[in-house]
Design a binder for these strands. Structure first.
Lengths: 347, 347
DNA sequence: GCATCCTATGCAAGCGCTTGCACAAAGCGA
DNA sequence: TCGCTTTGTGCAAGCGCTTGCATAGGATGC
């Protein structure tokens, strides 16, 4: 691999291409009759180069089919032009809208998104190093990193860090999110105002879902309600477990006039289970979701839910990173994107 | 940035760290009393280094908090240790299972996945260059690249290319997919065998969906059926447009005893619309989907559909890339992952 | 007409690694 | 005991870019 370049200066060969056939800056420079510095400038800062030189170089680029090696460029310039996104999952995840929006916003500027799948909990050294070692120009977190070792590593990485989908108590760096606690609290108030008496909290076991659930319960009690019943489901996106769980509760004589779910999947599953038991929704039992997925508003029974603007989170995060990359200071480093409680037909 | 290193040799300073604080190989080497080459070997090929040297170096790594710069490493070694995935979308896409499976399989080996969002159609030069310029060790395509310019660029990129979710007529390189045509054909046969007479093809406008639809229609006619009616929906994942479209067809006096859809989303929307009109599924009208999403089997009405093992595609692709990266030859460069027609309660 | 200032370009020193090669030391068989 | 392998390490030449600095011509001012 390396050897091919041995004796590099070895007189000008007919085919100037070096390095295993892929043309380099030097090949382009030679062809255009300029220095590599000039070619680099044509690519990165064309206004600093005379017009006819630019066009001559561009022609050479076209002829050689040159594609800049961004690894080399990143190493030299200390800007990698990509951001890494650490997500717990990507298969039908609630963060996907955010990822997609961010990805699109960034790609306009030549930035790409690198994916790092990180389960909740500590001990991701390998993946973290793989990410940090690439010196991303930004790091988006969607899971909450409690682990001090992890947080330290991230901090020391030198990349701008954006925590999203939450408002951490003491942020590492930048934040775009909302308060899960507020969601829980507001939802309690809302459900109460709607006149329901016995909420059942059906929730995935994950950190943030729990935070909402807990806040709901506390607020509910404070509003004079009885401590609500709770159900934890392991697979937050499968219908089966949710239905089984709810079914068992009902079979066991559990009473509830509304099921407050930690996701629209869970909510939809609840509706299905309720109907399967001949219960009318919302008459016999109401259902509230979280997330406002596409299908929620347009399905058989439009779901009452809490809407989070995931795409806006993505846009905002992208803008922040771009600011940082350009050396601008981020005017508002902590953004609360808020949420919206939507009443539809399931409550 | 650069300047900091001027006068580099400037006697050994108390704080040996160079480069804006982030420790480098050299810092570790100095601390461990070895050469940078040795540190590099400890990291990449520890068996080639004496045991006590290894532990001494590892200690130095731990003390300095050194994280290897993979940009530099990639440049030097000509292996970037990441693969790029070109996908049309990531928000609730059918490819997400594949992405996730692949991502997980690869991350065990220190590989990361870089995302490139590529809409169907030609003209992605910018994104393509951003991807290729990073010299990925592999390139996963999920959209079909017809455009000759694009194909050429990909071929010349030097990275292994895997086309997935289809079996292209003349592959660029590696393939893990299945035949959309066969799906259409088999489905026609199957639906016919089930006794249906008037299929309505409800399909997204995308390339692959069309391929299945066309194959279905041809096969259907060949089996003696009448040319089936077709409906094209623009947003393949929204319920609204699908319902509207189907509704209009029915309102306009269109007749059909089964709706064959190009996705489970469309199928579910069809079920919802049919029920909303008081039609019984499958008695008055049956529905067939495609994709077998989680919810399809566990929802209110378990959907008949075509199952594709997206995760298997991801695994297989990852294995292929790892083989290529290790210099092994891929024993089977074209893998047909097949599909499975599943009868559930909507037909 | 000469000093002064731009503007366009080139030079060359890196960026932080990897790795072929050279070499010293240690192990080994006869 | 002596040549001959192995190991284990270091040297140093890159990988393909970016960019501070120097320089060479114009253009400009007086």
């Amino acid at each position: 691999m390396r050897g091919k370049r041995t004796g590099q200066g070895r007189a000008s060969r007919a085919a100037p291409e070096t390095t295993g056939g892929r043309p380099t800056l030097e090949d382009v420079a030679r062809r255009a009759g300029v220095s590599t510095a000039t070619v680099s400038r044509v690519i990165n800062t064309p206004k600093k180069v005379a017009e006819d030189t630019v066009s001559r170089v561009q022609e050479a680029i076209a002829q050689t089919g040159y594609v800049p090696n961004l690894l080399a460029g990143g190493l030299a310039s200390n800007r990698s032009r990509f951001v890494a996104a650490l997500v717990p999952s990507i298969a039908s995840s609630i963060f996907n809208d955010t990822m997609e929006a961010m990805s699109r916003a960034l790609s306009n500027e030549g930035y790409l998104v690198m994916l790092g799948l990180l389960d909740e909990g500590p001990g991701h050294t390998a993946i973290l190093d793989a990410v940090i070692g690439r010196r991303p120009d930004g790091l988006i977190l969607t899971s909450i990193e409690d682990d001090e070792a992890t947080r330290g590593k991230l901090k020391r990485s030198g990349s701008p860090i954006i925590e999203t989908w939450a408002l951490p108590a003491n942020p590492i760096d930048l934040v775009v999110g909302f308060s899960h606690r507020d969601v829980g609290k507001e939802l309690a108030r809302h459900v109460r105002a709607l006149g329901y008496k016995r909420p059942l909290l059906l929730s995935a076991g994950m950190r943030r879902a729990s935070e909402r659930t807990e806040a709901f319960a506390r607020a509910w009690v404070r509003l004079g309600g009885a401590e609500p019943a709770r159900l934890i489901v392991e697979s937050p996106m499968r219908y089966g477990p949710a239905r089984t769980s709810l079914g068992a509760f009902l079979d066991g004589g559990g009473k509830a006039d509304i099921v407050v779910c930690s996701s629209d999947w869970l909510a939809d599953a609840s509706v299905v289970e309720a109907k399967a038991r001949g219960m009318a929704v919302p008459k016999d039992i109401a259902v509230f979701g979280f997330g406002d997925m596409h299908m929620s508003s347009e399905g058989a029974l439009p779901l009452s839910t809490v809407r989070i603007d995931g795409a806006a989170i993505g846009h905002t995060a992208a803008a922040m990173l771009l600011d940082r990359a350009a050396g601008r200071t981020v005017k508002d480093p902590i953004v609360d994107i808020g949420f919206e409680i939507i009443d539809r037909q399931s409550s």
